[in-house]
Design a protein around this nucleic acid. Structure first.
Lengths: 232, 232
DNA sequence: TCACGTGGTGTATTATTGACAATAACTAAA
DNA sequence: TTTAGTTATTGTCAATAATACACCACGTGA
């Protein structure tokens, strides 16, 4: 009888506050950074930090909400980012303000695509090396950890790395990006052989001179779409 | 000003109806089946079918809600199933009754674990071969399609198959399960070499006589946990 | 004991991986 | 112009893994 009564409640009496949170990553001189925002709500008054996020409006999808909050909270143009849904966190006490279910997203953006403002830090939004982003508000440590794990495994069997690299890049940059995310060293020769055989990137016939040494061949991704291929 | 006003609305005015849906799979004589339920709500009156699911209560997590609905709607003991979150669907018009956000799950259960009742079909809950489960209510075709895709890719690089096989199984059964899900033929000798080298299963030293022919060695999984290993 | 049907195994070939270091290209300073 | 300094680029060999492929083993029941 209890169950039946619940099941017959009008829908508007059943509600959950729905929110989105996003782990927005970029690769800044071979280190992975995440965009954090200041959290100044109880009980996170003192120097609180957390992932950008906020509520979902009744008339927007979760993805639209993420984009809106990336713009408003992270102060980054959402159109520059690549979004993937990560996981939905529905723990009852994950937010001290009440029942809030969060759909978490991972977002990637190449550092080179960002404007000077977007690269900068303010009191309310700032870039932090992933390794130093700890003790975040709510369950954001868990969300960030899951985002990092997922990123690590997905770059190994998809072309996701293309969403962190600039349009034109060298093989050394590509290799360093992998090494930084995977916390591993790759063999230069074997890496090049493997990547070139996959036909996911193509030389654009130009070189980049970056100092007093041999310039590196520039490449770009053959497709814009993220494909599922065994890379490493 | 509009944005500011929204942002300051009290939380209880921002709501979404949160629901869960589940693609519950089992492997019944080498074919993948999914559990469907009758859907008799407008506009799905005539012979409507859909995935089991329902609303999330304010005091339960999404996973608890899935388990509750697996029991109540699919008429299967949820403790027998293995659950994985699939994706959250937040399309504004996905449910004609109003705004309903769905957290979709995949559930797996070995056919051998089910009771006679659970194996049976009623008017309101029944097993259907995955290939024949089409034209479902709401966006359940999309959810089921995504669940099937995810299952296909995850059995290739995790030990997920263990959640579809009975406790004790033969190598032939294991191979047929892979073949059925992947819609592919595997080489018997190479399959056995590969699986045995991975050390994910161990012989239990007994055989199963299944007819007038040589009995097959029985195996069981070494670990209960689903591990991420390259299998195929 | 033999016919039947499934279970179980080995080998040879090819493809892939992984470990390894020398030369090329360019700049700037002597 | 020569040289020193720095990064870019390339190939070989050995080991391992992947693939293709066919026969005997084992148990049952006629």
């Amino acid at each position: 009888m209890k169950k039946t009564k619940q099941a017959h409640n009008p829908m508007h009496l059943r509600f959950a506050v729905l929110s989105v949170d996003v782990a927005l990553f970029t690769m800044r001189d071979h280190r992975l950074f995440v965009r954090l925002i200041a959290v100044n709500r109880p009980p996170y008054f003192v120097n609180g930090k957390g992932l950008p996020g906020g509520l979902v409006d009744p008339k927007e999808t979760a993805e639209e909400a993420v984009k809106r909050h990336i713009e408003a909270k992270a102060l980054i143009d959402p159109e520059k980012t690549y979004l993937e849904q990560l996981y939905t966190f529905s723990g009852i006490d994950r937010d001290p303000r009440g029942r809030v279910v969060a759909v978490a997203y991972t977002a990637l953006v190449p550092w080179e695509k960002l404007s000077a403002t977007e690269r900068g830090d303010t009191d309310s939004a700032f870039w932090v090396p992933v390794g130093e982003a700890r003790e975040l508000a709510y369950d954001h440590d868990e969300i960030l950890g899951m985002a990092e794990n997922r990123l690590q495994s997905r770059i190994a069997y998809t072309t996701l790395i293309s969403k962190l690299l600039p349009k034109e890049f060298t093989l050394t940059e590509m290799e360093q990006t992998y090494e930084s995310i995977l916390h591993a060293n790759l063999d230069k020769r074997n890496f090049r052989k493997k990547i070139l055989k996959l036909n996911i990137i193509k030389s654009i016939g130009r070189k980049r001179a970056d100092g007093a040494f041999r310039p590196a061949e520039l490449y770009r991704f053959a497709e814009n779409k993220v494909k599922e291929i065994e890379i490493l």
